[in-house]
Simulated assay, not measured.
Amino acid sequence: MPIDAKQPYDDQNIFARILRGEIPSKTVMETDHSLAFHDINPLAPIHVLVIPKGDYVSWDDFTAKASDAEIADFVRTIGEVARMTGADTQGYRVLSNSGKRGGQEVPHLHMHVFGGAPLGPMLSR
């Protein structure tokens, strides 16, 4: 169910629980400020989620409140994940859903890195 990305951060969301080690994940990469792991319900042969370790609800929340070091680390981690998974060799998509109309389901900023197959149109109706 889509969430309101303008609500305060919910520290019981699934990604917060993964960061605290309460829920396991299959890690692709971890840095001081970011965690990348395989999606448990992949929508493409390559489907990795990249999340900041800070308590940010959405992209606009993150870019308004995160430090320059956190932002740089997060963006670099996304690029490194594309290279590590081989998604960069034939093309990939980076996607972040934000808020109800954007289809955001977890109130923690996350980027999807998709690849490994043709991904179709950017939006479907």
Rank of each mutant, 00 (worst) to 15 (best):
Q12I: 02
Q12D: 12
Q12A: 10
A16H: 06
R17Y: 08
L19K: 13
L19T: 10
R20S: 15
R20G: 11
R20P: 06
I23T: 14
S25G: 04
K26C: 00
T27M: 01
T27D: 14
T27Q: 13
M29H: 09
E30S: 11
T31S: 15
T31K: 00
D32K: 07
L35A: 00
H38C: 06
H38A: 12
H38K: 12
H38N: 15
D39Y: 13
N41Q: 14
P42V: 04
L43S: 13
L43Y: 15
L43G: 13
I46A: 10
H47F: 12
V48F: 03
I51K: 14
P52S: 15
G54R: 11
Y56C: 10
S58G: 07
W59C: 12
D60H: 07
T63W: 01
A64W: 08
K65P: 05
A66S: 11
A66T: 10
A66Q: 11
S67Y: 03
D68M: 06
D68V: 09
E70I: 09
E70A: 15
I71T: 14
A72L: 07
F74I: 11
T77R: 08
T77P: 01
I78D: 05
G79C: 04
G79P: 09
A82H: 01
M84K: 15
T85D: 13
A87I: 09
Y92I: 12
Y92W: 02
R93K: 13
R93A: 05
R93I: 07
V94D: 02
L95S: 09
S96G: 07
G99Y: 09
K100L: 05
K100T: 13
R101N: 11
G102E: 02
G102V: 05
G103A: 03
G103F: 06
H108E: 13
H108T: 10
L109K: 03
L109I: 03
M111Q: 02
F114Q: 01
G116I: 00
A117F: 00
P118A: 11
L119W: 04
P121C: 08
P121W: 13
L123N: 12
L123E: 08
L123I: 15
